[in-house]
């Protein structure tokens, strides 16, 4: 099995999602099932095929360097779980 409990543990840490120890194994089985189904992609010959990263054949539009936004502190922190003096207050980060 390609996706095992250890893989799920590692991926869950990267994704910052707590998964109880006892759920790692069932989750691994489930994801492994999906990945095995996805593996049928290997039947497709994609040699020399340019990966398609966007659905539109267009290039990136550019905007002028003008200040059109900002100065909306109340809107920025309107939904904050905790805020003081315009700052977001978040759990203590220890560096």
């Amino acid at each position: 099995m390609a996706v095992d409990a250890a893989t799920v543990r590692k991926v869950a840490l990267l994704a910052r999602i707590a998964i109880p120890e006892e759920s790692l194994e069932p989750m691994a089985r489930e994801i492994d099932g999906i990945m095995s189904w996805i593996d049928q992609l290997n039947e497709v010959d994609t040699d020399g095929v340019e990966p398609m990263t966007s659905a539109v054949a267009m290039t990136l539009p550019l905007r002028e360097d003008v200040v059109t936004d900002g100065a909306v502190v109340e809107k920025v922190v309107a939904n904050a779980p905790k805020t003081i003096d315009g700052f977001f207050v978040v759990p203590k980060v220890v560096e």
Binding site: D69, G70, V72, V73, G86, F88
Partner: peptide, 10 residues
């Protein structure tokens, strides 16, 4: 001031 130069995108 704090978060004064912030848009909703930022």
């Amino acid at each position: 001031g704090p978060n004064e130069q912030v848009s909703l995108v930022d």
